[in-house]
């Protein structure tokens, strides 16, 4: 189906403005993310894990975003409320690939959930990546809270929230817009919508009458843009502009990135390659065309990242599964009282 996707050609000055070094950094993150996600898909198909959901197709936008985060722990740094297609953001911020593989294989060493949750459900306190949940759009509600923390504690740190197009029909999206634009205390939140045109099997244009999701920004008079999220340069520049607005004005901005969903919704829909524009292939063509990289250079990036993912996978294969009794850990922050019911009934 034909989609209203802007042609992925960023202005030449965008490439010049970013420079080869930054462009290649973005490229390396994109490749790492793709190499990781394709391995995760394989694992789900070969019984080396169960369900897969992830971000192939979002690498351009997510790498550009993740590399511009003010990363660290606490209110002096950006808080991120992400969704299940955000791996490239976390990789750009330094998440080791081995951790994602651990969660896929649900081993005890899975640092995000101790083998309890699906892959790409991250939680990284050191990077202010707050708990990610399968519940669509709830991250737009929790973003309000760290937004308030950022508004109170000043500085230039902001809250960033990211989710899909389908989810914007939920009230939580509206909550986020209303609270972020509250005259009593505007919130520095970069509200991102990764619009892949689909919510599982339902096409966006059959359910959403708004021309652009970013048009919601007009109601509040907030800066809002719709961009080609398959283009890392256009993404980088738009993110930089709106991030800077949020950081300095301490107010919200809305950014809609139109991008591809390259392996369908999840393993439930087969996780097979879909013929939509591939942000990495497009980016590599541009880099070569502009002589910002050589073919050998790009191939080396692929080789290194594939090798890294492979080595990490071999390591994770040998790691033990969680112990059954570990279900009693972390129920309450201060441990379970001795008399807490633990039998699952009468026996």
């Amino acid at each position: 189906m034909a989609r209203d996707m802007r042609t992925p050609s960023a202005p030449a000055d965008g490439y010049a403005a970013l420079g080869a070094e930054t462009l290649l950094r973005i490229h390396a993150v994109m490749v790492k993310a793709r190499a990781l996600e394709e391995r995760l898909i394989k694992m789900s198909k070969s019984g080396d894990g169960f369900f897969w959901i992830g971000g192939p197709g979002e690498e351009a936008f997510n790498a550009a975003l993740g590399l511009q985060v003010k990363k660290g722990q606490g209110t002096a740094y950006d808080y991120l409320h992400l969704h299940y297609r955000s791996s490239a953001i976390a990789l750009a911020m330094g998440m080791p690939v081995v951790d994602a593989l651990r969660q896929m294989r649900n081993v005890a060493a899975d640092p995000f959930s101790k083998g309890r949750n699906f892959v790409n459900h991250l939680a990284i306190p050191q990077l202010n990546i707050v708990p990610m949940s399968s519940t669509i759009e709830t991250q737009y509600a929790t973003a309000i809270g760290t937004g308030i923390a950022h508004a109170r504690d000043g500085g230039d740190a902001i809250t960033i929230v990211n989710g899909g197009d389908g989810g914007t029909a939920e009230g939580d999206f509206h909550s986020c817009l209303v609270w972020a634009n509250r005259p009593a205390l505007p919130l520095p939140i970069l509200i991102v919508v990764a619009n892949n045109g689909w919510a599982i099997s339902v096409a966006e244009d059959t359910q959403h009458g708004e021309k652009n999701i970013s048009d919601w920004g007009k109601v509040f008079g907030m800066p809002a843009k719709t961009i080609d999220g398959n283009d890392p340069v256009e993404s980088w520049l738009a993110i930089a502009e709106l991030m800077s607005y949020c950081r300095t004005q301490r107010r919200p901005a809305l950014l809609e990135a139109k991008l591809s969903r390259l392996y369908g919704h999840s393993s439930s829909s087969g996780a097979n390659r879909i013929p939509e524009p591939d942000c990495i292939a497009l980016f590599e063509a541009r880099l070569l065309e502009r002589k910002l990289a050589t073919k050998e250079q790009l191939e080396k990036t692929w080789r290194e990242n594939l090798a890294e993912v492979d080595a990490a996978h071999q390591r994770v294969k040998a790691e033990p599964l969680p112990k059954a009794e570990s279900i009693w850990e972390d129920v309450f922050a201060d441990g379970l009282p001795q008399s807490y019911p633990r039998n699952g009934g009468s026996f």
Binding site: G74, T75, Y79, H81, V130, P131, T138, Y140, A141, T142, A143, I144, G145, T146, G147, I148, A149, T159, G171, D172, S175, C176, V178, W179, R182
Partner: peptide, 20 residues
């Protein structure tokens, strides 16, 4: 705050995660 229970709980959660 706004008349929005989901916003209220979401705000509380985010604040709690930020150490408030």
């Amino acid at each position: 705050c706004p008349l929005d229970e989901r916003g209220i709980i979401g705000a509380a959660m985010g604040l709690a995660w930020a150490g408030f």
